[in-house]
Structure formats: C-alpha cells, structure tokens
Design a protein around this nucleic acid. Structure first.
Length: 426
RNA sequence: GGGCAGUUACCAGAGUGGCCAAAUGGGGCGGACUGUAAAUCCGCUGUCUUCGACUUCGGUGGUUCGAAUCCACCACUGCCCA
C-alpha cells in the first residue's frame, strides 16, 4: 500500500486534513467517498479533481465510493454561494443523475471481485425511506443549531444581504447523514472533497462521533484557481464539460493548451499521473525553451487521453496542427482532405446558389450563425476580429462568392485568434 | 402585524426632473506585442436592418412639454421589533 497522502501532498492536493487520517490510511485498506451533485447532465472539469482523488485512492489500494447526490441535489448546497439557488425539477435531476453516473463509471475500476473495487451509490436510495420526523428526531437531535450556524457557508449568508432558506440551512445535516450512512453500512471512514466542502464534511464526522461513537476522517483539496485570479474552467463559450457532445475533445484539448505557464506548472501536478521526477524534468525543459510550451502540451495530452481516449486525442492534435501550425502559410496549403477531416470545430452549411450570386460578408456571417446579429458582426469587424480564409475582413460590404471557396467547397472563418468556424457550401 | 432600508446594464455601484443608453470599477470580448502564455497598452461591451432607429433603470398607474429621477399603489429582498 503506497502512501496516498504523501502522493497527494507533493501534488498540492491537500488543503485541510483531519488528524489521524494518514495513520488510518497506512493501517489498512480504507473505504472513502466523494460526493457529486447532479446540478447538470454532465460533469465539468471542476469535478475532475475529486474524481482524481478517487482514482489516486484506488491506485493506492483503498476502496473508492462515488456518491451521487440525488437527494442532496434536491436541497442545494449553499457552500460558496452567496445566493439561494433555484431548485431543480425532478425530471432534470433524473436526467442529470444518469449523465453524471455514466461519466463516473469511466474513471474508476468497478470490478467487484477486487477487494477495493469502486462503488457508485445514490443517496436518494436511503433518503427516500426516511421521513421528515424520523430525520429531525434521529439525526437533528445530535447537532445543535449553534454548531451549524458557526459554519462558514452559513455565517457568510447570515451576514450577507441575501439570507438563507431553511432548506439550504439543512444541507450540511443531509450531507452529514450521508457520511453516517456510509460509515454504518459500507464501513466508509473517510470523506474527501473540495475545500469548500470542509464544513459539510466535518458535520458528518461529528454526527458519526455523536450518534455511534465512531471515528471518521476527512481531508479536502484546494479549489483550483487561475494564477490571474479568474475562474477556473470557464471560457467565452462557458463551462468545459467532460461530455464530448457538449465540449468537443478538440476544444477540451485547447483549453488545457491555453493554460498560462504558471497554471500549467501547478495543474500538471494535480491533473496528471506523471511522477514527481517526470514533472520536474518537464518544468526544466519548459523553462529552457518556454515558447515550445512543453508543459501545456503535455498537460493537454494527458488530460485528453484520460477523459476522451487515444483516438479522440489524436484527432484533436490533428485539428490543432491544421489550424495553428503554419499560421502564416497560405490558406491553399490546407488540402481538401485536411478540411474535410477537421473535427471538433463549429461547422455549418450554406447554399451554394447564394454564393454564386454573392452575398455581403456581414449577412454571410450571421446567416451561418457565427454571429447572433449583424450588429454583433459589425462590431467585431470594426475591432478587426474577423478573418475569412485567413485574410482579415475589413469591409462589411465585401461580397462573399464562390471564389472564396477552398477546393470549391469550404470557407474558413476565424473570429479572434482561436475561434474557428468551417462553412461548407452545398 | 409594526418600523426602517433597499430594488439601476453580466456583477458591483453612481445618477435624485431635460446635457441619460445612463458615470466609474470589475468581468467578458476583440486588437497590438509575444509563445494559441503572462504583463502592458488600445478598442468594444442595451437591442437592431448603426452617420439612424428602437426598448431599458423591480411592476402598474399618475403628475409633467419632458421621469431612472416626483406621487400613489403593488411585488420582492434585507435588518430591527412583536
């Protein structure tokens, strides 16, 4: 059994840790869980860190449980939120549970013949059987309101302007009960999560101690931040999802490739399984020649492989090379095969007849849904942000005609430096 | 139930009868430089068919030549008291 905590420590993945946790993990095969709230039908890269905790855990010989919050998702976690959240409808929730479940299944080994085979549970399965009265008598009695109010997630809201509903106030108890349930039914003695979960997690260990006199452990990992203080995992197009239908593997690859030097050096420790030695080598190599972006490339590679697999990774690389290597080469250097096999970028089709007659550039761009309106397209043009076939567009009236078609079939549009659109004429 | 405060664009937050599509900051987007970094500088940021038109300042009605600004009622939020 390898030292799981040490492994996470050098990777910078430990924020808070309860005393005794390390000793417990050294002593025996320990069952640990992480909760995932089904707030959307796919996980995004923010969930990757807790997933990796479970993967590392299993690699170290311990038993992981991924818990889907079918019940807690109905309540809404106030942690890190300054405002009351909207409740999800049951229909959405069920859809989300199915989506999240199928993704989690990809990352862990669920082989039940292994002593540390992973398990996937849904807390709705036990909460649906508990009545409100039972809950407040059997569980609520063990935790004082004073205790609950001292929690950061609660305190902030009490001091803030928006208040907090009773529903969200109870969240920590509901999550705490999960830990108690897993402790008693699955011999689960460790909970992990993001550092925003610390308060909720501690309520769980407290409940276990008061209700059954048992001892449970916990640690949290830091929330991922960008070095410039921006939100992690968001781009102009929104979240980076793990679902290839919501964020294509190419876009996923690009997200990591665009990490700043500082972020890349931190993230490669957290998000990949490379050893300390390998990472140190990469960092040195990167510093010698930063323009090669060795760290970013490796980070993007490891993650795309981990989430989407080899075939998708190779396609993402291919698309990247076609679009970005040789930026200054003429557009004609892209062969018809190149264009036809570009994957992952936004494509649309356009009637060839309209091109034979010619259409002004602004209309062409809006009709292909590259811009929402002509006004938006004009503004972008004025800012110098649009290129057609790698030529900067300067005239809104410029007619787009069949002469623009590459290989008599495609037109390549660029918005900004990194956003490509491919229009196919039919 | 009583009292007080508040509700302005993505967020924060000015504006308190015409000069208001609404200061400023943040965020976002784009440009230049570079390495598809970072930092810096510049531009855009209500909508649209953009030298113009249209719709906004919680909602509804009113006063006025003219309202984000004044009045009435309603809704919501927070705080305090019961």
């Amino acid at each position: 059994m390898t030292n799981f905590i040490n492994e996470l420590r050098w990777r910078g993945m430990i924020q808070d840790i309860m005393p005794g946790t390390e000793e417990q993990l050294q002593k025996e095969c320990t069952t640990a869980y992480v909760g995932f709230d089904p707030t959307a039908d796919s996980l995004h890269i923010g969930s990757l860190v807790p997933i990796l905790l479970l993967v590392h855990l299993q690699k170290a010989g311990h038993k992981p449980i991924a818990l889907i919050g079918g019940a807690t998702g109905m309540v809404g976690d106030p942690s890190g939120k300054s405002e009351e959240r909207n409740l999800l409808s049951e229909e959405d929730l069920n859809k989300n549970i199915i989506g999240v479940k199928s993704q989690l299944e990809k990352f862990l080994n669920f082989d039940s013949s292994l002593p540390n085979g992973a398990e996937l549970l849904n807390n709705y399965d036990w909460f649906q059987k508990i009545s409100f009265l039972d809950f407040i008598r059997d569980t609520g009695k063990h935790i004082t309101v004073n205790y609950m109010m001292a929690k950061d997630s609660v305190k902030k809201r009490l001091e803030g302007e928006n208040g907090m509903s009773f529903t969200e106030f109870t969240y920590q108890l509901v999550q705490g009960y999960d830990f108690y349930w897993l402790y008693t039914h699955k011999n689960c003695t460790l909970q992990m999560g993001g550092s925003d979960q610390w308060g909720n997690i501690v309520t769980g260990t407290e409940l276990i101690r008061r209700k059954s006199g048992g001892e449970a452990f916990a640690f949290t990992c830091p929330l991922i931040k960008k070095s410039d203080g921006g939100k992690f995992g968001k781009t102009e197009k929104g979240n980076i999802w793990l679902d290839a239908n919501k964020t294509s593997p190419y876009q996923f690859y690009q997200f990591w490739l665009n990490a700043s030097d500082e972020d890349a050096a931190n993230w490669i420790k957290i998000f990949t399984f490379l050893t300390q030695g390998e990472i140190e080598e990469l960092v040195t190599a990167h510093q010698t020649n930063p323009s090669e972006r060795i760290l970013q490339k490796r980070l993007a590679q490891e993650l795309t492989l981990f989430v989407h697999g080899k075939a998708e990774y190779e396609k993402a690389i291919e698309t990247t090379q076609k679009l970005f290597s040789n930026q200054h080469a003429t557009i004609e250097s892209l062969s018809i095969e190149d264009l036809e096999s570009i994957e992952g970028i936004v494509t649309s089709t356009f009637e060839k007849n309209k091109l034979i007659q010619g259409i002004d550039a602004i209309s062409f761009l809006t009709e292909n849904a590259i811009f929402e309106s002509k006004g938006a397209a004009r503004k972008m043009l004025q800012n110098g942000g649009i290129s057609i076939n790698r030529n900067k567009l300067t005239d809104a009236q410029m007619p787009v005609t069949v002469s623009h078609l590459l290989h008599n079939k495609f037109i390549l549009i660029q918005v900004g430096k990194k956003n490509y659109y491919l229009v196919e004429a039919k």
